[in-house]
Amino acid sequence: MSQIHVTATINGDETEFLCDPTETLLDVLRDHLDLTGSKEGCGSGDCGACSIILDGRLVCSCLVLAAEAEGRSVETIEGMAEGDKLHPLQEKFIEHAALQCGICTPGILVAAKNLLERNPNPSEEEVRYWLAGNLCRCTGYDKIIRAVMDTAAEMRGAA
């Protein structure tokens, strides 16, 4: 199978990779680029553990072919903290104990960040609907929702 050469901007850096036409962006992030923060929970768009931002839009990277990323911008969980400085959402997830096993956490953080960029003042219902495609088998969701609401409030205060 002939390999496809792709150039994409990943977390702000121009990145080149080779991929098979059938490989997903999630496969390439994890297996070729060593960006293993995005998780594969289901591989069928149901769990959200593989959530990334593609040209500003939240998508499941398990349902994007790697070759589709040519010329596009990709943001993953690895781009969220600035060096050692955690993003406010990451801080609040720790403070609220909004994670247990942590498998769902990167996807939820990426999704929540995209929500707060679009809507700095979401209602609890809006947060719950926005994150409905991010499954968590551990926390029962409540702490996640509270951490997101608290971050939103704090970021509004700081702005």
Partner: peptide
């Protein structure tokens, strides 16, 4: 149709 992620595509 699906979740936020699915609606993005």
């Amino acid at each position: 149709i699906g979740s936020t992620q699915i609606q993005g595509r």
